[in-house]
């Protein structure tokens, strides 16, 4: 280990996984430093979402390790990883549509056994995301896309994870809502939350991230500081190449 472990919250080494018999990730090494924002960018279908799902335990790890604060957690089921402090906010419809907003929040804190702590965090969530407070008795499925995105972020307040994995937070949102989501992400990161964002919206992601990983066809092309990347990688060409 050439980097001190206490600086790296999440680290993968040679991660291989996929769906069915189809290998999607071909040995991915990623380091996510503690307390910073890292982003994974890359063309469509490069395995960015698969990487997050594998790390979170939703997709089975075929080979390789996932170290969470130095401990290998590869192969553990997703619900167990949540208890260890892993929090994945998946893309698309993430809420339980027929549960009310407040029931959704309670479910996000399923691993928190103290009722008073849950109540306290619900209050904090409403304070951080006031739009949810007005909707607390409403089934989450009736929320607008932006409100659902806020509800997804509220999970972070409920769970207090060690690592936040965000999958395409800007997907399907209006520019105004995207700004709002990133404002919240920045606020959380400002409190020292280790964050890993997978994003199609490269400009937005690079604006908040200190570190970037470029993933192309299941292989890491670049990993390092964002400002160095801009000098080393021709993003325009990369994406054209990936699409072709």
């Amino acid at each position: 280990m050439n980097e001190a472990l206490d600086h790296v919250m999440l680290r993968t080494r040679g991660l291989v996984s996929g769906y069915g018999r189809l290998e999607t990730l071909h040995g991915v090494d990623v380091d996510v430093p503690a307390g910073g924002v890292t982003t994974i960018i890359g063309p469509n279908g490069s395995g960015k979402s698969t990487f997050l799902k594998t790390v979170a335990g939703l997709v089975r790890t075929w080979r390789g390790e996932t170290l969470l604060a130095g401990e290998d957690v590869a192969g553990e089921p997703a619900h167990a990883l949540v208890r260890r402090g892993m929090c994945l906010v998946p893309q698309g419809r993430v809420v339980f549509p027929l549960l009310t907003v407040e029931e959704n929040l309670r479910m996000c804190a399923f691993t928190v056994s103290s009722a008073s702590m849950v109540r306290e965090r619900i209050a904090q969530a409403y304070e951080f995301l006031p739009v949810l407070a007005d909707r607390r008795r409403q089934p989450a499925g009736t929320l607008s896309g932006g409100e659902q995105a806020m509800l997804a972020i509220a999970k972070v307040i409920m769970l207090r994870p060690r690592v936040l994995l965000l999958d395409e937070p800007s997907l399907g949102l209006s520019p105004k809502m995207i700004d709002l989501v990133y404002e919240k992400v920045r606020a959380l990161a400002g409190q020292g939350l280790t964050t890993l964002i997978v994003e199609q919206n490269v400009r937005k992601a690079l604006a908040v991230a200190g570190r970037a990983v470029v993933l192309v066809l299941g292989t890491v092309r670049y990993a390092g500081p964002v400002d160095q990347m801009k000098a080393e990688v021709d993003l325009g060409r990369l994406f054209v190449e990936g699409e072709g």
């Binding site: 939703l58 994945l88 479910m107």
Partner: peptide, 20 residues
């Protein structure tokens, strides 16, 4: 409520720490 959550979105439930 967890049972209903699993019925609606098993993956999200798993990601909320519920052992589906």
């Amino acid at each position: 409520t967890a049972i209903r959550a699993v019925a609606q979105q098993p993956d999200s439930a798993e990601l909320a720490g519920i052992d589906v």
